[in-house]
């Protein structure tokens, strides 16, 4: 059952990704990308990572994509975008990206002893039992990895200040 669901959602995720790239209208592309995010969240749930799945939907599908959608609809984009995707440069960039992704996939599929084989499922179960779905993420994040977490927060803050500054100069 789980395997069947995994195949269904994996197919949906890839289908959404292809639809995103091939879509003729920006809004349709965006909705395909939402499908991909949703399928990824479903795959996270199959891996017992409920909290990550919820955050995936709340942040990516629910917030960031709605913001993108608003911007696309507000600016009425999509009349002269096809020129960007033509020409030699696009083919070169596309092939290089495909090569890199293919290499990483081949490494991931052939490497012996993935985390799942080393008792990852038991670790997740124990963490969920001792703390709850949120605590299992929050404890390592705020205890063991607090410095990287804070650095990421500062990075986001810098990006936000920069965006405000750039927008303000135009006015």
């Amino acid at each position: 059952m789980t395997t069947l669901l995994w195949y269904i959602f994996a197919a949906l995720a890839i289908g959404g990704g292809v639809g995103m790239v091939m879509g003729r209208q920006p809004v349709a592309s965006l909705l395909s990308l939402v499908l991909t995010f949703f399928s990824l969240a479903a795959i996270y749930i199959l891996l017992e990572a409920h909290f990550i799945a919820a955050v995936q939907i709340i942040v990516y599908a629910g917030a960031i994509m709605v913001l993108f959608l608003f911007v696309i609809m507000l600016l009425n984009l999509g009349h002269d975008y096809r020129a960007d995707l033509r020409g030699l440069a696009w083919i070169v960039v596309g092939s290089v990206s495909a090569g890199v992704i293919g290499y990483m996939l081949s490494r991931a599929l052939t490497t012996e002893g993935a985390i799942v084989d080393q008792g990852g499922a038991e670790m997740i179960d124990a963490a969920l039992r001792n703390h709850n779905a949120v605590g299992a993420i929050a404890l390592p994040m705020f205890r063991d990895y607090v410095v990287p977490f804070e650095l990421t927060a500062v990075l986001l803050l810098v990006a936000m200040v920069g965006a405000v500054l750039l927008a303000k100069r135009r006015v």
Binding site: A54, I57, I58, A61, V66, A133
Partner: peptide, 17 residues
């Protein structure tokens, strides 16, 4: 389910689509 109300927030945020 272990995520409880986060499930509701996640799904209602999809309703806007």
């Amino acid at each position: 389910i272990p995520i409880g109300i986060l499930f509701i927030i996640a799904l209602t945020s999809l309703g806007v689509y």
